[in-house]
């Protein structure tokens, strides 16, 4: 797919999103779509480090929460418009990504994964003991009820998240096709050989962690406005870390489209399950689907399609 086609499709998706806000008045649909889009951003962000460079991050929830709590802090000091909040959260989470990357990227494989898990625990402990953002009690955030032209604020948040998802996917695609993407692929395949081929491995991994962390933070930024009440155990929820890994794995980690497919598929199933069965069944579904995919299609849906097409040739 060429860039022009890509942007054409992105523009159509954006236009459909805007059109939907004019035709439907049920806020629930926009909420559900928002959650799915939030996972598109989260999964795409995870894939920049996990899929392209092969470094598995188990601490996605920490970056998500860093974004959410950045919003809480700014909201308490001086409420900014949502897009600015997202940018601010992205900067904070990006810096955290850069910092943890600097401390942990000399570790490889499973050790890096454990270090990211530790980061999540450390950050959660810090938040629990930080009174300004409510500590373990949590903080209430009152969001505006309406937004000019659109009516409900939920519709506005849906559109903002749609825009963010398009930006995140575009950036992931840009990285994948650039010298950076080739360098990260070399790191994923063989770090020694990459270094011997002139690839500055540490620097590239730092860029990837910072960009990945920044988008995870941005995905979490509007979270306080969605639920109105932020407390550590829901923001640092295991579901974010698990979904951020499971969605790209199910879609396919080697291309930008994989996490998008995985997030839309799994995110939608979860939303349907929440209203039809129960919200507690979500993680069970993720687990079962993941096990099934590891056995049937270890390279995800994209990998499955690719090998099918190769066979047809």
């Amino acid at each position: 797919m060429r860039w022009t086609n890509f942007f054409l499709i992105a523009a159509v998706v954006a236009a459909l999103g805007v059109a939907a806000t004019q035709f439907s008045s049920n806020d629930y649909y926009f909420f559900a779509a928002y959650v799915v889009l939030q996972y598109v951003v989260l999964a795409t962000a995870w894939n920049i480090l996990g899929g392209y460079a092969g470094y598995v991050n188990f601490g996605s929830a920490a970056f998500f929460a860093a974004g959410a709590y950045s919003t809480v802090v700014v909201h308490k000091l001086y409420p900014l418009p949502l897009p600015l909040l997202i940018v601010f959260s992205g900067i904070v989470a990006g810096l955290i990504g850069f910092g943890t990357g600097y401390l942990t990227l000399r570790l490889r494989g499973v050790f890096f994964a454990i270090a990211t898990l530790a980061l999540a625990v450390v950050l959660q402990t810090l938040i629990i003991n930080w009174d300004f953002v409510g500590g373990s009690r949590g903080a209430y955030i009152i969001r505006p009820h309406t937004f000019p032209l659109l009516g409900s604020y939920m519709k506005y948040m849906f559109l903002v998240m749609l825009g963010l998802a398009i930006v995140a996917v575009s950036v992931a695609r840009l990285i994948e096709r650039s010298w950076l993407g080739y360098g990260l692929a070399a790191i994923r395949d063989d770090e020694f050989a990459a270094e011997a081929s002139g690839v500055p491995t540490l620097r590239l991994k730092l860029v990837a962690t910072a960009v990945s962390g920044a988008f995870m933070g941005m995905a979490g930024s509007p979270f306080p406005y969605i639920i109105g009440y932020v407390e550590p155990s829901s923001t640092f929820n295991l579901a974010y870390a698990v979904n951020a890994i499971a969605m790209p794995m199910i879609g396919g980690t080697s291309t930008w489209i994989g996490p998008v497919i995985g997030a839309i598929l799994l995110g939608t199933i979860q939303q349907v399950a929440t209203v039809t069965i129960s919200s507690a069944v979500n993680l069970l579904i993720v687990g079962l689907v993941l096990v099934a995919f590891v056995i049937i299609a270890p390279n995800g849906l994209v990998g499955l399609a690719q090998s099918w097409m190769r066979k047809r040739k």
Binding site: A185, D189, A194, A196
Partner: peptide
């Protein structure tokens, strides 16, 4: 390398492309 260490997920020409891009 003593034991060949190719970038397994890339094609032969992409393997050669990496050092071109980075050196």
């Amino acid at each position: 390398f003593q034991l060949p260490r190719p970038f397994t997920s890339l094609t032969v020409s992409e393997n050669v492309r990496i050092p071109l891009l980075y050196t």
